[in-house]
Design a protein around this nucleic acid. Structure first.
Lengths: 158, 158
DNA sequence: TTGCTCTTGCGAATCGTTCTCATTTGTCCC
DNA sequence: GGGACAAATGAGAACGATTCGCAAGAGCAA
């Protein structure tokens, strides 16, 4: 069990403030992968005077110290999750946007090998599977990366 | 050898205009993965009165008819490439931003299997390897997806 | 407290990308 | 070849997630 986010922050020398405590609480209570605005709305329920800018600044700081991780599934806004102790990849349910985490050592290995064969040292990767729940697999989508087809506005990061 | 982009367009009923011809020419002469602004600048060299809006519109249309594909390596702007006849993934040289294409049937298979085991039907995926050229692998990067750490402004799409 | 640095709020600024609308162009048809 | 019409274009405004600037507040060590 990892220590509370607040403890982790203190351990990393991140100054604790009221707003940060609220945001940390929101994050630790989130089991989904919320985007900045969602974090903001949840935080605002606890402290209505918190500012969206503070949310952005805080998640950046948390990324900096490796407490949070951001992903941009689907190319609209960035979504956040606590940095997992064990690396995992994501499967995105294209019907609902829900994210399922999984790990697969074989894939990890293959990636290393491929990079090496191309003359590189792997420093990071992104693997996302976009999928439809089995059962009634309708929706005659054209083809290609379905994600890009539905994105709207994009995001930034430091 | 695939027919010229212009022929492909005609075959798909895409109305040919002077601007589109210019953009198609730029795209077919590009061996890199240019972003919209790069396409615009290259096109402007041929037809200085072309508008950036036209580039965006054209590129969207081409995606619609499956002639182009977009990717958002690194989360800044979308980058384009002709839709390959054979699917491939990308390795991004984090030092230069250059993109290397590769294919690996084993990985494709694994992905299918993983989705299936989770109760889904794979409809798309994204696999990107971020890597440093071997030789002098310095740069003490913290960890995590290095991409997100360097992105700046984000993008949109339909 | 005092001092000092880091943080916060608010609103303005960014900046890829998209939209609006008046105008031009491609295409089909006679 | 001339019209008719839908579709495409240019220019600039609009959008929207994210970031910045700056004045006011808050941790925290001494």
């Amino acid at each position: 069990m990892t220590s509370s986010l607040e403890e982790q922050c203190i351990a990393k020398g991140v100054k604790m403030t009221g707003q940060r405590r609220v945001i940390l609480r929101v994050l630790s209570e989130s089991t989904d992968h919320p985007d900045a605005d969602t974090v903001f709305r949840r935080a605002a329920k606890i402290d209505p005077k918190i500012s969206i800018a503070t949310v952005y600044r805080t998640v950046h700081k948390l990324e900096e110290v490796n407490i949070l991780e951001s992903h941009d599934f689907g190319g609209d806004r960035l979504r956040y999750e606590q940095r997992p102790e064990q690396h995992h990849d994501h499967l995105i349910d294209v019907r609902t946007g829900k994210v399922i985490e999984f790990t697969n050592p074989q894939i990890e290995e293959l990636q290393q090998r491929i990079a090496q064969e191309l003359g590189f040292r792997l420093v990071g990767h992104r693997l996302e599977l976009y999928a439809m729940p089995l059962k009634e697999a309708d929706k005659p989508k054209a083809a290609g990366h379905p994600v890009h087809a539905r994105a709207t506005r994009r995001k930034r990061a430091r």
